Simulated assay, not measured.
Amino acid sequence: MSKFVLLLAICCMCLLQVEANRKTCDEVSAICVKAQRLTGPEDDVTNLFNFQCRRQNRNWKNITRCQLERAACLLTLVKCDRLSCVNVINALRG
């Protein structure tokens, strides 16, 4: 019984950590959107990423710097996945 309780506690702690990371990404994204008026919606990294994804998929719709930043945050902190065109779209969808 105590092993089960310990396992349950570890699972709860992991879920809380994922939720905290998601909130962190929300905060980072909100800061980026506020600063976007000054810095603009795109930069060299975003342009290069969009260019590369457009080469792989002709139907690619450009994403903004803040969308790329949010997707990168979600992929690294929440999903522990790599930054690819498909993963970015999936992260932004939900």
Rank of each mutant, 00 (worst) to 15 (best):
K79D: 08
N62S: 10
S84W: 04
C80F: 11
N21H: 11
C14Q: 14
L15W: 13
Q67V: 01
R65D: 00
P41T: 10
S29F: 08
N90T: 04
A91V: 03
A91S: 11
N87P: 00
D44M: 07
S84D: 09
R54W: 10
R93G: 03
V45A: 06
R37V: 04
C32V: 04
C73T: 02
N87I: 01
V78E: 13
T76P: 00
L83F: 14
K34F: 08
N59K: 15
Q67K: 13
L75Q: 09
R70S: 01
C25S: 08
G40N: 08
R55N: 13
L83E: 02
Q67F: 08
E69R: 14
N57Q: 14
F51N: 15
A35C: 07
V45K: 14
L6T: 05
A71R: 03
N50M: 09
A71N: 02
I31Q: 14
M1T: 14
K79C: 05
L92S: 02
L68I: 07
L48F: 12
C53V: 02
D81S: 15
N47I: 04
L75W: 10
I10H: 02
V78C: 13
L83N: 06
R70F: 01
V88M: 01
P41C: 02
T76F: 09
T46D: 01
D26H: 11
R22N: 13
R82L: 01
W60P: 03
C32H: 13
C12K: 08
N57Y: 14
E19M: 08
Q17W: 10
C85Y: 04
Q67C: 05
I89M: 01
L15A: 14
N57V: 05
I89C: 03
V45W: 12
T24C: 06
N59S: 10
Q36A: 09
V88G: 01
L38Q: 10
S29L: 03
R65M: 00
T46M: 11
I63E: 02
K79H: 14
D81W: 10
R37K: 11
L75I: 00
I10C: 07
R58C: 02
V18Y: 11
L92P: 03
W60T: 03
E42H: 08
A30W: 11
C53M: 11
M13K: 08
S84N: 09
C53E: 06
D43A: 03
C73G: 10
Q67S: 08
I31T: 10
E19D: 13
S2E: 13
L7P: 01
K34S: 14
V33G: 02
A9L: 11
Q52F: 11
C80K: 15
